[in-house]
Computed example of a mutant assay.
Amino acid sequence: MTTAPAVPTPVIEQPPTDGPRTRQRRVPPARRVGRVLVVVALLLATAAFVYPFVWLLSASFKPRGDVFDNRLWPRTWTFQNYLDVWQTAPMATWLVNTVIVTVLAATTVTATSAMVAWGFAHFRFRGRNVLFGLVLATMMLPGAVTMVPTYLIWKQLGFVGTLVPLWGQNLFASAFYVFLLRQFFLALPRELFEAARLDGAGPWRVFTRIAVPLCRPALVLTLLFEVQAAWTDLMRPLIYLQDSSTFTVPRGLKALLDQFGFGGEWHWEIVVTASVITTLPMILLFFFGQKHFIQGIATTGSKG
């Protein structure tokens, strides 16, 4: 009786355990130097943009004689400036007025610009491109050209001295925001709107239920742009507001600067402290809304 020959078992080579399985790619020295230079340039640019606010924040904690000593770490710390600014000026009233103007200005211009942009992007009518060109042509007019006629209109309506002229003009949309949102609406597929119309949806329902949710990043971007513009606006408050009880924060800062900066009293610690209180809301807004801000710019740029 013969036995079958034994079959040798295959030997599986194991990878060496004393070294990495894959060899890492070495970065060329020139590329490393380039990355270092880019990082250094970004750090310098960041420092240049951050330094003014850091100096302002530091100066707000200094006594009057040390405001301009250019130290980022105060030699003498004081919190009295933040108590004096609320007693010296009606900052609470100015902040409330600014919030009212900012909310009304941002919401109205976003809503009206979206509706106008939707009309130019979705509907087909004779002379549409010509009319849209006229809307864009208004962006070429300097603000000084329309300043006096606009003032006369608000004076005839009896709104000079109130907050209405600071946001009422936004009821008629903005040419820049119309252009921005129209480019976004044009990138949306028309098949969605045609399908909604076949299901019985009217133009307003198509706009509010389909178009607006799809362009939410662009709407958020428009809202943030206008919030920043309305919060820091000084020209219109200087023109239309005379009573300190109706001042916004930028107009109030101008009054404080005239009184304590160049008016002979030289209380610069009050001015810089009020400036910090004014700047902080914008920093917090960008900090919490930067995701929507960057998403809105990226999405509008790629689809526009």
Score class of each variant (00 low, 15 high):
residue 1 M to T: 02
residue 5 P to Y: 00
residue 14 Q to K: 15
residue 15 P to M: 04
residue 18 D to A: 07
residue 32 R to C: 04
residue 35 R to Y: 09
residue 37 L to R: 11
residue 38 V to G: 08
residue 40 V to F: 13
residue 49 F to R: 06
residue 51 Y to T: 14
residue 61 F to C: 01
residue 79 F to V: 11
residue 80 Q to M: 12
residue 82 Y to Q: 09
residue 82 Y to E: 07
residue 86 W to S: 01
residue 87 Q to A: 15
residue 88 T to W: 11
residue 88 T to M: 14
residue 88 T to P: 00
residue 94 W to E: 10
residue 99 V to N: 06
residue 108 T to S: 04
residue 111 A to F: 13
residue 112 T to D: 06
residue 122 H to S: 02
residue 123 F to G: 00
residue 127 G to K: 01
residue 131 L to M: 12
residue 134 L to V: 15
residue 136 L to W: 02
residue 141 L to D: 04
residue 143 G to C: 14
residue 154 W to E: 03
residue 155 K to F: 06
residue 159 F to K: 00
residue 160 V to P: 06
residue 165 P to Q: 04
residue 165 P to Y: 13
residue 167 W to S: 06
residue 172 F to R: 00
residue 176 F to V: 03
residue 176 F to P: 01
residue 178 V to M: 03
residue 180 L to K: 03
residue 181 L to W: 01
residue 181 L to K: 07
residue 188 L to W: 03
residue 197 R to S: 12
residue 198 L to E: 00
residue 211 A to T: 02
residue 211 A to S: 05
residue 213 P to W: 08
residue 216 R to K: 07
residue 226 E to A: 01
residue 235 M to F: 15
residue 238 L to E: 08
residue 242 Q to H: 10
residue 246 T to L: 15
residue 253 L to D: 10
residue 254 K to I: 06
residue 258 D to E: 14
residue 271 V to P: 00
residue 273 T to Y: 03
residue 279 T to N: 10
residue 283 I to C: 09
residue 283 I to F: 12
residue 297 I to K: 01
residue 297 I to Q: 08
residue 299 T to G: 14
residue 299 T to Y: 07
residue 299 T to K: 13
residue 302 S to V: 05
